[in-house]
Simulated assay, not measured.
Amino acid sequence: MRIQEVCRKTGLTKKAIYFYIDQGLITPDRNAENNYLDFSEADVGRLQIIALLRQYNVPVGAVEELFRYPSMTNFYLHRQLADLFSDDARAAFRRLRTKRLNYQKDSFLSILSCYNKGKGDDGNETD
């Protein structure tokens, strides 16, 4: 199978596919007549798995280890899920902290505004 068809089936770019070849994640044969890469269904299947794992930010090194040690799949997937949840928790905490700081700032400005309404330009109270 030619690379254009592989791109269509996997949703990956040629650049990504060449990267995964360089990393040794797939090893397509070369056609002896024209020196083109000839991808097997197994190569396409591996690339589909790679694409799915990369969507969930699984590092290429971990993908390589998953292919090398398939019995460790549960371990890697659980670790990745924990990292994703941890990232989500940190992002939620940052959103809450920002919201709280904005609320505090708005409250402070409101109090300051009320305080300054009773002051003249020179800072002294007016009647």
Results as ranks from 00 to 15, higher is better:
residue 1 M to H: 04
residue 2 R to E: 05
residue 5 E to L: 04
residue 5 E to P: 00
residue 7 C to S: 07
residue 7 C to G: 04
residue 8 R to H: 08
residue 8 R to L: 05
residue 8 R to W: 01
residue 9 K to G: 01
residue 10 T to K: 09
residue 11 G to H: 08
residue 13 T to C: 10
residue 13 T to D: 10
residue 13 T to I: 09
residue 17 I to H: 10
residue 23 Q to V: 07
residue 24 G to Q: 09
residue 25 L to Q: 07
residue 25 L to P: 03
residue 26 I to K: 13
residue 26 I to A: 11
residue 26 I to H: 14
residue 27 T to N: 13
residue 28 P to T: 12
residue 29 D to H: 07
residue 29 D to I: 06
residue 31 N to F: 05
residue 34 N to Q: 02
residue 35 N to A: 10
residue 35 N to M: 12
residue 36 Y to D: 13
residue 38 D to L: 11
residue 38 D to W: 07
residue 38 D to A: 15
residue 38 D to R: 10
residue 39 F to H: 13
residue 39 F to C: 07
residue 39 F to L: 14
residue 39 F to Y: 15
residue 40 S to I: 09
residue 42 A to F: 05
residue 42 A to R: 10
residue 43 D to T: 13
residue 45 G to Q: 15
residue 46 R to W: 09
residue 46 R to E: 02
residue 51 A to E: 14
residue 51 A to L: 09
residue 52 L to C: 14
residue 54 R to W: 09
residue 54 R to N: 11
residue 55 Q to C: 14
residue 56 Y to S: 15
residue 57 N to P: 03
residue 57 N to Q: 13
residue 58 V to C: 11
residue 58 V to A: 10
residue 58 V to P: 06
residue 58 V to T: 13
residue 59 P to E: 07
residue 59 P to T: 12
residue 59 P to Y: 06
residue 60 V to R: 05
residue 60 V to P: 04
residue 61 G to L: 11
residue 61 G to I: 07
residue 64 E to G: 05
residue 65 E to H: 01
residue 66 L to S: 02
residue 66 L to Y: 04
residue 67 F to K: 02
residue 67 F to N: 02
residue 68 R to G: 04
residue 69 Y to P: 00
residue 69 Y to A: 06
residue 72 M to T: 08
residue 73 T to R: 11
residue 73 T to L: 10
residue 73 T to A: 14
residue 74 N to R: 15
residue 74 N to D: 15
residue 76 Y to L: 00
residue 76 Y to A: 01
residue 78 H to T: 09
residue 78 H to R: 10
residue 78 H to W: 01
residue 79 R to I: 03
residue 81 L to P: 01
residue 82 A to N: 14
residue 83 D to F: 01
residue 83 D to T: 07
residue 85 F to T: 12
residue 85 F to I: 05
residue 86 S to R: 04
residue 86 S to D: 02
residue 90 R to S: 03
residue 90 R to M: 02
residue 91 A to M: 13
residue 92 A to M: 06
residue 92 A to R: 08
residue 93 F to R: 00
residue 93 F to C: 00
residue 94 R to K: 01
residue 94 R to D: 00
residue 95 R to D: 02
residue 96 L to G: 00
residue 96 L to M: 01
residue 96 L to K: 00
residue 99 K to Y: 00
residue 100 R to T: 00
residue 100 R to W: 00
residue 101 L to Q: 04
residue 103 Y to W: 03
residue 104 Q to G: 05
residue 105 K to L: 12
residue 105 K to Q: 10
residue 105 K to T: 10
residue 105 K to Y: 05
residue 107 S to A: 13
residue 107 S to V: 09
residue 108 F to T: 11
residue 109 L to P: 07
residue 110 S to F: 05
residue 111 I to A: 15
residue 111 I to L: 14
residue 111 I to N: 12
residue 111 I to C: 14
residue 112 L to M: 13
residue 113 S to V: 08
residue 113 S to W: 07
residue 115 Y to P: 03
residue 115 Y to T: 12
residue 115 Y to E: 08
residue 115 Y to A: 09
residue 116 N to C: 10
residue 118 G to F: 08
residue 119 K to P: 01
residue 121 D to S: 12
residue 123 G to I: 06
residue 124 N to C: 07
residue 125 E to S: 06
residue 126 T to H: 06
residue 127 D to K: 05
residue 127 D to H: 08
residue 127 D to W: 03
